[in-house]
């Protein structure tokens, strides 16, 4: 199982649409890779992750469009997260990602219902 985390200085990057790098983690082998995403639009970002065989994406804020194309590419998106990547990763493997301390300030409603942001720009 391969998961991707948008990365910025060891933290979850604040905005997926603008993040320069994602960290790819193979949960079975522990192998870590980094994929550059700078300059790519949402569609291309989704395509890069899909080609890399990513099943889950952990990220911060995300535009409704990016969320849509990622979901359509078969990637589960865990958005509106913040904090150190290592801890988020650990929480993900333990199924604790719903802990409010991983939720970006003020974004609990979006964590509970990611579709909420989708009303915009669709």
């Amino acid at each position: 199982m391969r998961i991707a985390i948008s990365e910025w200085n060891e933290m979850i990057s604040p905005v997926f649409d603008e993040t320069g790098t994602v960290r790819l983690v193979n949960l079975d082998t522990g192998e870590i890779q980094r994929l550059p995403l700078s300059g790519l639009a949402a569609g291309a970002r989704a395509e890069v992750l899909r080609t890399a065989g990513v099943s889950d994406l952990l990220c911060g804020a995300i535009s409704p469009f990016a969320l849509k194309v990622l979901t359509m590419s078969g990637i589960r998106v865990h958005a509106w997260l913040h904090g150190p990547i290592d801890r988020a990763l650990q929480a993900f493997t333990h199924g604790d990602l719903d802990d409010p301390r991983f939720t970006m300030p003020g974004c609990q409603a979006l964590r509970d219902n990611p579709e909420q942001g989708m009303v915009e720009e669709t």
């Binding site: 910025w8 604040p14 905005v15 911060g60 970006m104 300030p105």
Partner: peptide
């Protein structure tokens, strides 16, 4: 009350935070 002590990028979530 939710923001004090938080990193500004996690609260503002701006397109230019990172770069």
């Amino acid at each position: 009350h939710n923001v004090f002590g938080q990193r500004c990028s996690d609260v503002l979530r701006s397109s230019i935070c990172e770069a």
